[in-house]
Design a protein around this nucleic acid. Structure first.
Length: 303
DNA sequence: ATTCAGGTGCGAG
DNA sequence: CTCGCACCTGAA
């Protein structure tokens, strides 16, 4: 494979493979639109841990170049994880029929829904509650470094339920979890004990799976919908965070306030199984792609 | 020093 | 069901 343009490099062992990407698939938007917190920007690509391996991804005109995976089976799993199976073009054409989405989708096109590991996704969004992105990333990174398996010199996999269930509250708090520490530990315990079967939820209906998740400590409507959408691929899920709430109120309810519950119901009735995709486009648009750190501190709220 | 940040749990009307 | 409020903690 010599499809790389000049300047691309990898310090990763092993060969690289090419994953074809049907347009309008956009890896950067997919990974940077709030679904996942553990991929790190690495030059013009990203790096992270997948299936216990340190990998690097970079999208090129020919497709996504993948370093770190050898077995074809692993590559196919990555393909599934990245949401490359979904007919994005058709989905976006359908969404574009909505007047609101039709105006903004040109700027958000290419967002795919990931199929994350439910466990890691669940903990990630429990940690995300009433939190900010840099600190969410910090906490998840510390959890991995402290409790997860080391897979490379500077890369750790996400800790298993059993490992977090065995963690002390003190050690968890050291990961800057704050009051979420008991949530993380207790959910880990429930999963370890089998009181909730995350794998079984894959085949469950949206409502049933949602009820199961809502029974967990630290999991409310928003976190549940994030997991249902970003891990289980339940398209009816429409996570309503503060940004999406404001966007929907402004563009679909003429600025009138609505409860999160009602906004979710509205979205499901309007977009059906594509509600989740609609949410991603709305979120990405209102949130913008401001770089992390200190840039982009727009204060304007009304717009 | 204060303020803020991608919700949740809880009590009350 | 809706509303109001407290809440760990790192960064600005």
């Amino acid at each position: 494979m010599a499809l790389l343009s000049a300047g691309d490099r990898s310090d990763l062992p092993g060969d690289h493979v090419l994953l074809p990407t049907p347009p309008p698939y956009h890896l950067g938007r997919t990974l940077q639109c709030g679904q996942v917190f553990r991929w790190q920007v690495d030059g013009t690509g990203v790096r992270g841990v997948f299936l216990g391996r340190r990998v690097r991804l970079q999208q090129t005109p020919e497709g996504i170049v993948v370093w770190g995976l050898a077995a074809d089976r692993e590559v196919q799993q990555l393909r599934h994880y990245l949401g490359l199976d979904a007919p994005l073009d058709a989905i976006e054409q359908r969404l574009a029929q909505d007047p609101v989405l039709g105006r903004l989708i040109a700027q958000t096109s290419g967002i795919a829904l990931l199929r994350q590991d439910p466990w890691e996704c669940l903990i990630s969004f429990i940690v995300s509650a009433f939190n900010n992105i840099p600190k969410i990333e910090l906490s998840l990174d510390r959890l991995a470094r402290r409790f997860g398996p080391q897979v490379a010199a500077d890369a750790w996999g996400f800790p298993t339920p059993a490992l977090l269930a065995a963690a002390s509250l003190r050690a968890l708090r050291a990961c800057a979890l704050g009051y979420r520490a008991p949530y993380v530990r207790d959910v880990a315990t429930l999963v370890t004990q089998g009181q909730v079967d995350l794998d079984a939820l894959r085949s469950a209906e949206y409502d049933a799976a949602r009820r199961a998740l809502l029974a967990l400590p630290g999991v409310g409507a928003k976190v549940a919908d994030c997991v249902l959408l970003f891990a289980y691929g339940k398209g009816e899920a429409f996570p309503v965070d503060v940004w999406v709430k404001r966007a929907v109120e402004r563009w679909y309810f003429r600025g009138r306030r609505r409860t999160e519950r009602r906004i979710g119901e509205f979205a499901r009735s309007r977009f059906g199984p594509l509600a989740g995709y609609a949410q991603q486009h709305l979120f990405y648009f209102v949130r913008g792609t401001r770089p992390r750190g200190r840039a982009g501190r727009r204060k304007g709220r009304a717009g």
